[in-house]
Design a protein around this nucleic acid. Structure first.
Lengths: 224, 224, 224, 224
DNA sequence: GATGAATGAGTCTTCATTCAT
DNA sequence: GATGAATGAAGACTCATTCAT
């Protein structure tokens, strides 16, 4: 009678988050009712308010958890501490694809329902999102400095690459034709080439190891 | 005798579509009420039903109009009848960016609110969407046949490129730092490189004019 | 160009009445919309208001027309001028059944939608209805005076008989098992017997032909 | 510990049924709004939906409850186990009048709003209604077998008698000129006579074929 | 911590009716 | 006499949220 106080509550809280995530991702925040969530959790509608003060609060919890987890995961990944810009970029692409295909609902929601956030909450999530974008921008900046990459516009390129990478979640299916790893390779290839230094400018000093990793094609990544 | 019967009706219909588009794009289909639309149009809520039988019907009209207009516009563009795959691809990128930045709301809505469509309507829009995707896939396929492009997986590449290109609408602002033309150039560069044939395989038969145009390589990225 | 003014209008008016009658009878006054009526008539909704100022007005027109026609038809029927109460009653039964099965919608509506009438209109229709009920009451009164009928309570008996007779419209179908004439016969029989003079009280002055006809049951009417 | 959970809910449910019954009976199902019901119950309109999923559902609950209660009450009444057809018929008439004048709203509603039932619900109520009609038909059939009654057509007679009996609710008022018991007597008399065996044919026996089947009265059906 | 009944504003949609054309 | 677009109130029903139990 005494013990598991708080335990059950936490479990319910997690179930609410899980159900809400799935429902919000499927139908959109505005189109999901508290009753639907409660039904999915297997609880009365009123019970939700023991754990979240507001529907908005549920959304915010999901998004903030996701963004913080994403950043933590990136920094936790060994990849993050590479020196070389190309290595970093490949690692970033692999990390992004892998993380996003593993948690497609969280990702989708965090892109789609920004507009459903109240201004205050929006600011918070936006800041976290910018932190993540900055990671890529920094890689590109470094790559350009290192003359490993060519980039017409760091910001635009970063946005374009992120859109491309994130887009994978909109069609990726766990049981699809391609494995997650194959997809990673394809995207690595697409991205690396998209910021590749045109031949002329890299001629001597780039025929080395990494290039073999990322390049699906031949050995001579002249185009990288 | 010259009675404007039907004129006023058509005007209202167009105003409903315009208001709905803006509101749906800003807040999402589910979050916009018929009253809001009516208010924006400057009409009583009931009057909407003289022109559309259903809220869903408004959404469908917007999406279908957009998809059909998009396809028509592409086929109408001189670009569509190019022979050369690289020329076609560049034309496609420019067309896509230009069209999508010109009509960001339509584009955004047609991506975002697919889930708000009733199954029957979803099928129709999906079919139109696939038509458009096929255009790009055909270009890539041709490019690979012509040995002008390298593509690990046509489908994935097409989806990735489209996601990248369409993503532009999520941050592009008319009055932003870059002109639409500059952005086009950046994306052309990103896309062309992302499917570029690695050096070795093109060195003999591809060192000609076009390659210089499309290829980011060398120093002559005039178009970038 | 000049002539048929008023002709077309009258036709439309009649079509409105006919459609309304059918729809009101099927679904009830409150459940039928002006648009439904207009659709059935084949006219825009607004056009109805050229002929009737109000939905209520349509209902009233139908009911009043019906009640007046009913009374006219009864008085016009030769039957109404019989002297003999039994003959009159039989005639009344036949008239009622025949008229009511011929116009089931009018009858049904005039019973069912009394409550839909605004007070003023209700009074008018009620008065007409009472006129009709009075016909039957007068016959029963005469029959009792003439010692051809036995009636515990004229009013109650009249209401009971009318309910019975009118009830036929609720199940009668033109193509049913029984012809209208057969049904008339059955009801004549039921009604005549229901007000028949019990044997004992008529044996002196009533032992004539008719009495035998109407008399049901011996002396065992303890319960009567 | 003795927590009255569910008590309040059940009370509200009953109040909704009672209010709806009164309002539907007075104005008709289609003419009564959920708001009116809620107002009468003394509750917000939304609260109705905690107890009934639909307006139709309220109507159905009233009707089904009524029909089942009617059947139960009949079978529960001692009258139902009489052997003698005449006794049964009298008992049936008294039961019907008594039950129907006691619950005029339920009865009225169950007759009037059949058309407001959705097809599925209609079937259910119709079946229950037929059960009840069958009771009377069985009595008449037995009466004819026992040569206590004469009936031209069992079905038509049963419908006619039920219409007559039920009609009482349309004019009966608790405080009227006649007591319920007096009315019962009048109707018993009317009904018993309406199916009485004609005198002549019952002392000797019916000396011709048709007369037994269809023709009530002797040979002299001049009036038939 | 959970329930279930309640609220009051809000949902999409339909209503009877009006009126310029 | 008819149309079709409009109105404003009302329709059934759902919403996020509250609170006594």
């Amino acid at each position: 009678m005494a013990r598991p106080a708080g335990i059950k509550g936490e479990q319910t809280r997690q179930r609410i988050l899980a159900s809400s995530l799935a429902l919000f991702a499927r139908s959109g925040y505005a189109a999901v009712s508290m009753r639907e969530i409660a039904l999915d959790v297997g609880v009365g509608a009123g019970a939700l308010y023991n754990h979240f003060t507001t529907k908005q609060h549920i959304l915010m919890a999901i998004m903030e958890d996701h963004m913080r987890a994403l950043l933590s995961a990136y920094y936790a990944s060994a990849n993050a501490c590479q020196r070389d810009a190309q290595t970093q970029l490949e690692a970033f692409v692999r990390f992004h694809i892998s993380y996003h295909t593993a948690l497609p609902n969280e990702v989708f929601l965090s892109y789609m329902e920004l507009r459903a956030l109240e201004p205050e909450n929006f600011k918070i999530i936006e800041a976290l999102r910018r932190n993540y974008e900055t990671i890529l921008k920094d890689i590109l900046t470094l790559g350009v400095q290192q003359r490993q990459m060519a980039c017409d516009d760091i910001h635009v390129s970063a946005m374009a690459i992120l859109a491309m990478l994130t887009g994978v979640t909109s069609w990726f299916r766990q049981q699809g034709r391609l494995t997650r790893h194959q997809i990673e390779n394809i995207y690595v290839s697409l991205v690396m080439r998209s910021v590749a230094v045109p031949m002329a400018s890299q001629n001597q000093d780039q025929n080395n190891n990494q290039s073999r990793k990322i390049m699906p094609i031949k050995g001579k990544q002249a185009h990288v």
